[in-house]
Design a binder for these strands. Structure first.
Lengths: 343, 343
DNA sequence: CTGAAAGCGCTTACAG
DNA sequence: CTGAAAGCGCTTACAG
């Protein structure tokens, strides 16, 4: 049915070896033959059979992306960054998302075995033991936003700490004497880093102010509950920094219901810069993460790891900088973006 | 390096043929041997080499998704639906997005050649001529949201017409005597269908009312401009139906700046139900599309086409129903969801 | 029920 | 510079 290398060879009156060499740019072929073969291949619409090629070259020209159960903007931005970088490297992208637990993640990882030259992994279910059990050592991998330590694996993280530190500083600079925090899930790596950023910035710039942390779970409702509690409390904070935007949105609703004006009575800030952030009233000051850049960088690191398997992974995991985006909810005088520098 | 079928065969003291049969569930093998082989394969962590298998079976167990340059929620929801359905069918998912023009789309399509058993295609750049030139007839494909007619290709569409028709009817039912429309890009298939739904509902339920259509491009700014024009016009419409939510959001801003109260002075509705819709003030009445369902259905149709290549495609392209989601901006008495029935 | 052998479509030493 | 041949790791008629 489909046209194979033999058809091209017959038509060009050469051996299949010559066709292979001509089409793969081997120097051991005259320009004239190369031209002739190329034009015949084009006329026949010859496409090399990728499975046959993979079988012999041990390369699939494909990378896999393992992602957790997911919603919204973050995912599409990440994939977009990965996809763009993959195309420019000539790599295909196999995705597997929507695995809600460790077993599903393991199954997905194994299912990709042999179909990809390397893996991009973003999953809360993945730790060192998981990788040892499910990822062959020979398969290069880059982990995104992972707490994993050690030189075993290549890790690429968002600078959650730096972003939270900068935001806390911004709120204090804007003149809000006390800043409270709404934390995320306890076992969540991003949430932990953001809380640490808040705490350390408070210690550095407002050592006498009380550190107040409400518990949340990244969901809108948990932000709402925290907001209600803050609104009622005797010593209401002058500013609230939520560990993500969805909680900030919930908190905003609670403040509105309590008759508190934002930012006049209480300032508010979030983290992530989801699209909703600019459309709530007042618009939400938040920390922007260049997610597509994260995807692109991750893919490029992976491509390097695939090309140079022996390369040692040295030093700390690189961090992707975040930007404080000042909108109306934080009540500062300034407005705009500033890149969060690490402390 | 990697363990192959020969390693399993040697360990089990059988031929590779028997290992293949045992692992693939051929009936021509005793249960006892099957058990023994299976346990040895598991112990050795044997994973069949997918390229080798593809080479002989002519199947890749992979489907490709070709998507245009994209942002936001729609894409992630669609991929989620496709991915879930693919996993349950045992299929892998290769994605290619971010191609901004016809040439890039063609390159992406050809690059997937031979790597997939079928294709899911959503692209404004794809028409009949494009497919004839770039998609081999033997490759099953399902087109999403395409204006393509004829029995050549399998098409799956969102019922834009029915949704717009139902929304227009809802606005009229809510007591708004005149409903204006903000259209999308002229060459956009979704936009055309939505406008048709508006026009036909107006003709059916408010035959004496004026049909007013402002031009837009699906961008927030174009909705803003239309909103300003409506606000100023002598016979201001009582309700505005924007062909998508982003334009409705822009229109809402224009109304707010003009001192018009929504919905008291003018009602407003959009289309898509993007996440922002529920967070603007007032919350936006809109048409909800179950995008994940679209992805799931498309994949299931594709899987069927792959399994039964000869099957004839008969009748009209199936439609995915939409729901009118009533929120505050339309000012009706009722609130909630109703599935849009086709007229 | 089991095995030996052919063959899927490529690439790449090895000769010449 | 070019070709004949081996081989990548599987599956599947074909014998037995």
């Amino acid at each position: 049915m489909a046209v194979t290398i033999r058809d091209v060879a017959r038509e060009a009156r050469v051996s299949v070896a010559s066709v292979s060499r001509a089409l793969n740019g081997s120097p051991a072929v005259t320009d004239e033959t190369r031209q002739r073969i190329a034009s015949i291949a084009a006329r026949l619409r010859y496409v090399p059979h990728s499975a046959a090629r993979s079988l012999i070259t041990k390369r699939t020209q494909t990378v896999g992306a393992l992602l957790p159960d997911l919603y919204g903007e973050f995912f599409s931005e990440l994939i977009r960054g990965i996809d763009l970088a993959a195309r420019s490297k000539g790599l295909h992208l196999l995705v597997s998302s929507s695995h809600g637990d460790t077993n599903e993640a393991a199954a997905a990882l194994r299912a990709m075995q042999g179909r990809v030259d390397g893996m991009l992994i973003l999953s809360p279910h993945v730790d060192a033991a998981f990788l040892r059990a499910n990822l062959p050592e020979a398969v290069p991998a880059v982990l995104l936003n992972s707490a994993l330590k050690g030189a075993q694996h290549d890790v690429l993280n968002i600078d959650n700490y730096g972003g939270a530190y900068a935001m806390t500083r911004h709120l204090l600079d804007a003149g809000h004497a006390s800043v409270a925090f709404i934390g995320g899930p306890e076992d969540n790596f991003d949430a932990q880093q953001r809380e640490r950023g808040y705490r350390e910035a408070m210690a550095a710039f407002a050592p006498k102010a009380a550190v107040k942390v409400a518990t949340g779970d990244f969901g809108e409702e948990s932000g709402y509950r925290a907001g209600r509690a803050f609104a009622k409390s005797a010593d209401r904070p002058r500013a609230v920094f939520a560990a993500n935007d969805m909680m900030a949105v919930g908190c905003l609703r609670a403040f509105a219901e309590s008759g508190l004006r934002v930012p006049d009575d209480v300032a508010l800030a979030g983290f992530d810069d989801i699209p909703i952030a600019r459309y709530v009233t007042p618009s939400l000051t938040t920390v922007h993460v260049r997610i597509a850049d994260l995807g692109r960088s991750a893919l490029e690191r992976l491509a390097t790891a695939i090309e140079k398997p022996g390369r040692a992974l040295h030093g700390a995991a690189p961090m992707l900088a975040c930007e404080v985006v000042v909108r109306a909810s934080s009540g500062g005088k300034t407005s705009g973006r500033t890149t969060a520098k690490r402390a």
